[in-house]
Design a binder for these strands. Structure first.
Lengths: 213, 213
DNA sequence: CGGCGTCGATGACGCCCCGTCAGGATTTGA
DNA sequence: TCAAATCCTGACGGGGCGTCATCGACGCCG
């Protein structure tokens, strides 16, 4: 038998791609995440059901539980995913920054742009009046918090700024970013620059007026 | 038969107290709210179950649904309750205030004190790592937002302050209050005065630096 | 008092979602 | 080609959900 016209059902892989098991695993994980994003988007966090997500993936119910333990866990995975994608952007801003003002401006702008971009993907067709799900403290989200805090610390120290309550400052900045960002998303046209100017103005102006611990 | 020693089983009410029907209704409503507070406190919002609340009240399951349609609705009722109790305090601060600075200081302080007081009642025994439930936008909560916004508007106008983006400002102030308040609750001793100084300092300092729309 | 109409408390019920697990299909490595 | 490993499958027991027929208690009036 010549070897010209013969192809085995599955030709041997010459590359170092992971095996089929590994590939379906990541495919499943991704399918679940995608389905979850859509379901949460349409039904809201409370309204969503593990079964809804499962149905959308076409997998068996048991399979879901091979990947995530619960609705909370998928949701946290989505949040983690967002945080993981945002972190590098934050790091870039830190590298670029020359002082606190420029870091804050860059980070804030990066966040609002990120938010606006996510917005499209995320809130596909939210029924009116649905509260959007609470951002939970997953490992990656916590890491972002810590990273902001540390960046603040370093950059403030670098420019010999007087000491402040860093925990409060970090919390306040993130709070302003979140809430102003939220309001920004409701406005048309969506003005990330305006939101940035507001948030940065408030915090930079307030910084010198903070009590010294 | 003399009328001295005779009391009918239920002596007639001379007062204008509502009838028994009405009284058990308010009692039930209150019992459900109390039970809900405790259950949410112990199990967290996600972990709590309508059945848990029902069990704690001792009522029948059907009775619960005569008062609230769902877990969400009881929770919103609790939030509403908090907002309803906070609103007068806010109003008092508005009356007392002579300018934006004094209003902000008073309101912030009132909020942190309120928060600290609620804390005792609310987070009875939260298991570690539980995220506390999202504050939802119930009618009363929305009303508080609107009231803050209007108070800001009036007091800023009164002192001929330059115009600002009131929506952003309100959102930012509430955000700072919430988040700094949250951090405050985790500290021992709980320092409402310190938190107030921080939040007020940040916002008052930032106000003049805001972009003019 | 006594009788009647109404209100709302009751809890069993059917429905659906939950998370599990024994069985089976598919991939892997030899 | 075969055995072992992997993990997908879907039926199942458990339990929470919201409803509704029933009934006891309340209020009202003669």
């Amino acid at each position: 038998m010549s070897n010209i016209a013969y192809f085995p059902a599955m030709p041997p892989r010459e590359d170092n791609r992971p095996g089929k098991r590994e590939r379906t695993k990541t495919a499943n994980r991704q399918a679940i995440l995608d389905a979850a994003r859509q379901v949460f988007g349409e039904l809201g966090y409370d309204g969503a059901t593990v079964r809804d997500i499962i149905r959308l993936t076409g997998l068996a119910s048991g399979t879901f539980y091979n990947y995530y333990k619960s609705k909370e866990e998928v949701f946290d995975a989505l949040a983690d995913d967002g945080a993981r994608r945002f972190r590098p952007l934050l790091r870039v801003e830190f590298e670029k920054a020359t002082d606190f003002a420029s870091f804050l401006r860059g980070a804030m702008r990066a966040y609002f742009d990120f938010l606006a971009a996510e917005h499209e993907t995320w809130r596909v067709n939210r029924p009116a009046g649905e509260t959007h799900p609470q951002v939970r403290s997953t490992p990656e989200v916590t890491a972002v918090f810590a990273e902001v805090r540390e960046a603040f610390e370093r950059v403030l120290e670098r420019e010999h700024a007087p000491p402040v309550d860093l925990d409060y400052l970090t919390a306040a900045c993130i709070a302003v970013a979140r809430e102003v960002g939220d309001k920004m998303l409701e406005r048309r046209p969506m003005d990330t620059q305006g939101a940035t100017a507001f948030a940065v103005g408030l915090i930079l102006g307030g910084l010198p007026a903070l009590p010294r611990p």
